[in-house]
Amino acid sequence: MSSTGIRVATLEDIPVGEGIAIDKTVTGTDDNIALLRDDDGNVYALDDTCPHEVASLAEGWVEDGFVECPMHSSKFCLKSGEVQCLPATQNTRPHRVEVRDGEVFVYPNEAP
């Protein structure tokens, strides 16, 4: 694991209120990582696959500190990965993110 993180995107790559998926071959994780940009401009990283069904959280809606799964509308906290409503019953894993000079770095498997 790199102490400086892995550069995975620029801030411009991630529209406010949306997300992008970073392939697990880049991050070395078990799942792809969803980079999610909240409406306040902050960037968060969660495991990309919804724990309820196979759907990409990067394709969900990002707003007010949460991401909503595009398949069945389960919501997850961007900071902790904690599930907020059914049908999902399991949390998703958060990863530490840093934005430096407009570039986004992920620290895979490191808690935020």
Rank of each mutant, 00 (worst) to 15 (best):
60 G>Q: 01
40 D>F: 11
94 P>Y: 01
76 F>P: 13
46 L>E: 07
10 T>C: 07
30 D>F: 05
41 G>H: 03
68 E>A: 10
20 I>A: 01
107 Y>N: 07
30 D>Q: 11
54 V>T: 10
10 T>V: 09
20 I>L: 07
72 H>V: 07
102 G>H: 09
65 G>F: 10
56 S>W: 00
89 T>L: 14
31 D>A: 05
88 A>T: 13
35 L>W: 08
20 I>D: 01
25 T>N: 14
95 H>R: 13
107 Y>G: 14
49 T>S: 04
71 M>P: 00
44 Y>T: 03
94 P>I: 12
103 E>N: 15
39 D>W: 04
9 A>E: 06
102 G>A: 08
80 S>E: 13
85 C>L: 12
16 V>Q: 07
75 K>F: 09
14 I>C: 02
52 H>Q: 02
28 G>I: 05
59 E>K: 04
54 V>M: 07
64 D>T: 04
107 Y>A: 06
75 K>R: 15
26 V>A: 02
15 P>C: 01
70 P>H: 09
105 F>M: 08
36 L>R: 07
45 A>L: 11
20 I>T: 03
82 E>T: 14
53 E>G: 00
42 N>P: 01
18 E>Y: 11
91 N>G: 10
81 G>S: 09
23 D>W: 06
78 L>S: 11
20 I>G: 01
46 L>C: 06
7 R>P: 08
19 G>D: 01
66 F>S: 08
28 G>L: 11
68 E>Y: 06
73 S>P: 00
25 T>M: 13
1 M>F: 12
96 R>T: 05
19 G>A: 06
6 I>K: 11
56 S>K: 00
31 D>V: 01
104 V>M: 06
42 N>K: 15
61 W>Y: 13
44 Y>G: 03
63 E>S: 08
50 C>K: 01
83 V>G: 10
49 T>V: 12
76 F>H: 09
20 I>S: 00
104 V>E: 04
112 P>N: 11
70 P>Y: 00
94 P>N: 15
51 P>K: 00
35 L>P: 12
11 L>G: 02
4 T>K: 15
34 A>L: 08
112 P>K: 11
107 Y>P: 04
53 E>R: 06
56 S>C: 00
74 S>W: 04
82 E>K: 14
16 V>S: 06
29 T>K: 10
88 A>E: 13
82 E>Q: 14
104 V>P: 02
75 K>M: 13
93 R>I: 12
20 I>Y: 04
29 T>N: 10
97 V>E: 03
77 C>S: 15
81 G>H: 03
33 I>E: 04
112 P>L: 08
31 D>H: 12
79 K>A: 15
69 C>K: 00
74 S>V: 02
79 K>S: 14
98 E>A: 15
6 I>Q: 08
105 F>I: 06
5 G>M: 07
34 A>M: 07
32 N>C: 13
39 D>Y: 01
56 S>H: 03
108 P>A: 07
20 I>C: 02
12 E>D: 15
84 Q>K: 15
50 C>Q: 02
49 T>C: 05
70 P>N: 10
74 S>E: 05
37 R>W: 11
109 N>V: 05
77 C>V: 13
24 K>E: 12
74 S>Q: 03
109 N>S: 14
35 L>G: 03
100 R>F: 04
33 I>V: 15
